[in-house]
Nucleic acid binder design. Structure first.
Lengths: 218, 218
DNA sequence: ATAAATTTTCATGATTTTTTCACATATTTG
DNA sequence: CAAATATGTGAAAAAATCATGAAAATTTAT
């Protein structure tokens, strides 16, 4: 769960960050609209918390530019007195807003509410930064999508859904390749090799179980 | 546009009602949870504004009972200090909340925001410059209307309403062509080809999921 | 009824993926 | 330690899958 906090006041950023991190969110910061657009387009955030009044590029403009390209939820921070109408009248597609000064607790509650609304029911298997989204048929490491071949994907899925369980080559073959696979046992080895390589630092979690096969252990 | 305002304090109801009516909403009132449930089930409201602390039946309970039967947007009113977590931790499906004391202007802004959200979801699906207006049965790219064939339209609609979800050819065939289609799987491929072509630079967002099918991913 | 538009089929070639296999490296056993 | 056994690796062969274009079939409009 990644959130981008955009505000020119470092103090506010820090407080918000702390609270969000306490609740398990990973937080990036930007101090103005330009930085926000840059980060917002580069990364996939679950939410962007955006101040309105900022130097270089204000919050309205930044949101507009990001939303043009990406569909990401936005919560606006506005100083009390700033026009609400401006926020909603203009079709920015803002999900929520909070007026300053705000209680961090309330902010976090709203953040959770937005994320919940936007959550596509989780068929996600997560192991640290390794995420397998079965619905999307997609694997990512530390937020970056890894392109796995179909077999690699199936293999990984089978591994992670059998965390801590040693799996024989035969078992892997019958369950992933199908009962009618008559090829070489060692085919598994090759796929484990490529999969380990694809998973980078998470490759080590596929452990070799000598004389038996392999197991995933996180 | 009909809104139900539920609060045991008549003064609050009156103020809220006045502001909403000024903005062209039609407003009903209820002074406790029981009345709220009754009215909520009888009428079709675009929104229910619900206080939490009330005699006879509290706001939580009332919302729960109404939501069980009907899918209607809800905005909760909570006294400052009441637990936010309770609202969101429990899966009530509340759309927003406002803490007392609130500025009527803010309340109205939030009301408009909720209604807008719920309207939008029915008719227009937007992904950057790609807009599918289901009411108009029309697709446009960067403001320019694209002439899609019926199948292309159906296919795109199914894709975008399943953003981030991998769809098998079979799934696409049964859901778009109908369960009684007995033709070739590969028909899908051809339509994806033409659709991609029609969508120009947005064609790339229909991704091939090897060995499975396709997915739209924006 | 004829023309136009749309949908479907299908064969082709390009591309990606899977498998095999030989050799390298590591571990266990006698 | 040496032999035996098991796994890691790279490259090449084999296989599978997809994009594409064109033609046939079907539906819709004129």
């Amino acid at each position: 769960m990644k959130i981008l906090v955009v505000d020119d006041e470092v103090l506010i950023r820090e407080v918000v960050k702390e609270y969000l991190q306490f609740d398990g969110f990973s937080v990036d910061e930007a101090s103005n609209g330009e930085e926000a657009v840059e980060l917002g387009l580069q990364n996939d955030y679950n939410l962007i918390i955006m101040d309105i009044m900022m130097p270089k590029k204000d919050g309205y403009q930044a949101v507009k530019e990001i939303k043009k390209i990406k569909d990401v939820p936005v919560l606006m921070l506005s100083a009390r007195g700033e026009e609400f109408d401006k926020l909603f009248g203009f079709d920015l597609g803002v999900d929520d807003y909070v007026t300053k000064p705000f209680s961090p607790k309330e902010l976090v509650a709203r953040v959770k509410a937005i994320i919940k609304r936007n959550e596509k029911s989780g068929t996600k298997l997560e192991f640290g930064g390794l995420v397998l989204d079965d619905k999307a048929h997609e694997v990512s490491i530390d937020g970056k999508i890894v392109n796995l071949t179909p077999k690699e994907y199936d293999l990984l899925k089978y591994f992670v859904s059998n965390n801590h369980i040693a799996l024989s080559r035969e078992q892997l073959l019958t369950n992933i390749w199908g009962y009618d696979f008559y090829g070489d046992d060692r085919t598994v080895d090759t796929h484990v090799k490529t999969l380990r390589h694809q998973l980078g630092k998470y490759g080590q979690y596929i452990k070799t179980v000598r004389k038996v096969g392999y197991k995933f252990e996180f």
